[in-house]
Design a protein around this nucleic acid. Structure first.
Lengths: 190, 190
DNA sequence: CGTCTATTTGAATGTACTCAAAAGCGGTGG
DNA sequence: CCACCGCTTTTGAGTACATTCAAATAGACG
């Protein structure tokens, strides 16, 4: 399924065969069972991962042991602890598979090499970061201005596919509410 | 003070004289009094603004008229309603000066032209978007895992200069709490 | 089938909100 | 120059939304 990843990239930049094969050579592919940790907090965050199939989530565990889901990544999404990946800091988050998943990983060294060798990728990653930024900013905006119920409905409308692949408990931890409270909310009409 | 903006860019990419002068020619400079609207919701978001001096903030106003501060921008920061700027959508946010400010503005057309003419700027904006993304993601993480008081202390530690330039009411609306409640919190040791 | 986790339900609690009012502070005009 | 006006900040009482804890029910997986 390397097709998926190159198709993802071709949405934004045009690559020739040589560039494609260089890119492929810098990636490693893994198929992982459900509930496998891809990254553990305090470890070195070595990889940026593209989800070819399955689903992953990143989450933060605070001192009291409470989990906050930072993001979900289903097919065709990229995921990592971006701050720690880019700045070579020990990871703040955990990342785990929610179901059996196939991912392609780009190490930090290969990321640097790729940008050096094919500057066109600057554009690709600029657009990726731009989309990630505007998505997070919208999330902050909704967290500040909507009620828990409205946020839940907005999530379901925006990410119907994710809703099918993750548990309500995980959605609650993404929305910043308890599973008990989520369960009292009116179900949105999809 | 165009020095400031070129210095900001030189932190990440090296420009020759020709590129610098092209860049300068694509910018327009404005000095605005306190409480001036730079962008109004529903308008076309035409500009990305670099703050040379002063302070701006972007905020969202919901149906009930409640304001949520999305971001502050003091000297050397860039600000816009990024989603609407990039996607040519009517603005969701307002942006206003908090004090007398001097800003440099890059229109969307000039942004496209700049990236076309000097691809090195892809790298600059990749890094800008990257920083913005990781900053917002950390904010989401803190919103989900910290109490209001901890978020306030974290804000004061992270942005001491912003604290000097904005009101407590504005900080409250950034943190997602009421000014009354902020006022009951223990003052952090700076 | 049995075990483990997710989901739901309910009661008691707490955190943060609304509303009201007083105090503080800064800017402006007489 | 200073008195007034408007906005910010603080304080307090009452309230609402969301939490914790406990327990029952439902679902998924080996």
């Amino acid at each position: 399924m390397e097709d998926g990843i190159l198709k993802n990239i071709s949405k934004h930049i045009l690559l020739n065969d040589e560039e494609r094969s260089l890119f492929n050579s810098l990636l490693s592919c893994k198929t992982l069972p459900k509930k496998t940790l891809v990254l553990q907090a305090d470890q070195d965050c070595r990889y940026l991962s593209y989800v070819s199939s399955g689903a992953l989530r990143s989450y933060y565990v605070d001192r009291e042991g409470r989990e906050s889901t930072i993001m979900f990544a289903i097919a065709d999404w990229w995921i990592t602890d971006m701050y720690c990946y880019l700045n070579r800091k020990p990871a703040m988050m955990h990342i785990e598979t929610i179901e059996k998943s196939t991912i392609f990983q780009l190490s930090r060294a290969n990321f640097d090499q790729l940008l050096e060798a094919v500057p066109k990728f600057e554009k690709f990653f600029r657009i990726m970061m731009q989309n990630a930024y505007t998505r997070e900013q919208l999330r902050v905006m909704e967290n500040l201005s909507l009620t828990a119920e409205e946020r839940y409905h907005s999530f379901v409308m925006k990410y119907p596919q994710i809703v099918r692949q993750v548990t309500k408990k995980q959605i609650a931890s993404y929305l910043g509410i308890t599973p008990e409270f989520l369960s009292t909310l009116k179900k949105p009409e999809i």
